[in-house]
Simulated assay, not measured.
Amino acid sequence: MPVALVTGGSAGLGRALTHTLADTGWTVLTDGRRVDRLRAAGRPGVHALVGDVADEDHRHALAREVERLGRLDLLVHNASTLGPLPLRPLRDVDDAHLRAVWEVNTAAPHALTRLLLPALTTSGGALVSVSSDAAVEHYETWGPYAASKAALEHLTLTLAAEEGLAAYAVDPGDLRTEMHQAAFPGEDISDRPLPETVVPALVGLVRDRPPAGRYRLADRLAVA
């Protein structure tokens, strides 16, 4: 039975992916900061640990659980933060703000990958980092988040070059999630697709193993 670790699996795209994988025969390890949400997201085949991926002790706890499960076939860096809200122009972003976003979106995924790299390479597994179109575009007030995702993409694809990993930086597009709503307070985002709609494209990417690179899930859906 294949084993996946999906960070941030208590809501949004992480929860949708966790449920799909579990429903199709995977054992899924996931995490989140809120106990109530993790409980609500639970189902057979899902193992959940409460914690923040930016916390070193929590990352080591995840690694120990992977060791207990015996293998790792898929590592998905999904947990993210927008940083302090409301979003603001870079002239109003201080060092602490940048560090807060960097720790969750870039440094923590890199540190977790380093911990789990032996298990991932032994199984011939895949590495997926959930990114954003903000990593390649320049949207007002999105600077810290965008920069952290651009760096995450670069780290992910450099690991692919160095380690021969099947590694992918994935742009899921705008989705109807709590985090996206937080970026647009008071606005109606009901026109955005639900996270579940892009999960088949993400699962297909992992299954098909195209060359390592940056992929837009909308493009993958269009040719599916």
Rank of each mutant, 00 (worst) to 15 (best):
Y145T: 12
Y145I: 14
Y145V: 12
A147F: 01
S148F: 01
S148W: 02
K149A: 13
A150M: 13
A151K: 14
A151Y: 01
E153V: 13
E153N: 15
L155H: 00
L155P: 00
T156A: 11
T156I: 12
T156C: 15
T156F: 03
T156Y: 12
T156M: 12
L157V: 10
L157H: 03
T158P: 05
L159F: 04
L159Q: 04
L159G: 06
A160R: 01
A160H: 11
A161Y: 03
A161P: 10
A161M: 06
E162W: 05
E162P: 09
E163Q: 15
G164Y: 11
G164K: 12
G164T: 12
L165P: 04
A166P: 01
A166Y: 09
A166M: 03
A167K: 10
A167M: 04
A167L: 10
A167F: 07
A167E: 11
Y168M: 00
A169N: 04
V170D: 03
V170Q: 01
V170S: 05
D171K: 05
P172T: 06
P172L: 10
P172N: 04
G173T: 13
G173L: 09
G173C: 08
G173D: 11
D174K: 06
D174E: 12
D174G: 14
D174M: 13
D174H: 11
L175F: 13
R176E: 09
R176C: 05
T177V: 12
T177K: 11
T177W: 14
E178P: 15
E178H: 15
M179R: 11
M179C: 14
M179L: 15
H180Q: 04
H180D: 01
H180C: 01
H180I: 07
H180T: 11
Q181E: 07
A182L: 09
A182K: 10
A182M: 04
A182Y: 02
A182F: 06
A183N: 15
A183E: 02
A183G: 14
A183I: 13
F184T: 15
F184A: 14
F184V: 15
F184H: 15
P185L: 13
P185S: 11
E187I: 03
E187R: 08
D188H: 08
I189S: 08
I189D: 08
S190L: 08
S190P: 06
S190A: 07
S190T: 10
S190G: 12
S190K: 05
D191A: 09
R192Y: 03
R192V: 00
R192P: 00
P193E: 13
P193A: 06
P193D: 05
P193K: 06
P193R: 07
L194I: 12
L194D: 03
L194E: 06
L194V: 07
L194R: 08
L194F: 03
P195N: 13
E196S: 10
E196H: 07
E196N: 10
E196F: 04
T197P: 11
V198L: 07
V198K: 03
V198E: 02
V198G: 05
V199G: 09
V199W: 09
V199T: 10
P200L: 03
L202T: 02
G204Y: 00
G204E: 00
L205A: 00
L205H: 01
L205M: 01
V206P: 00
V206D: 02
R207C: 11
R207W: 08
D208I: 03
D208G: 01
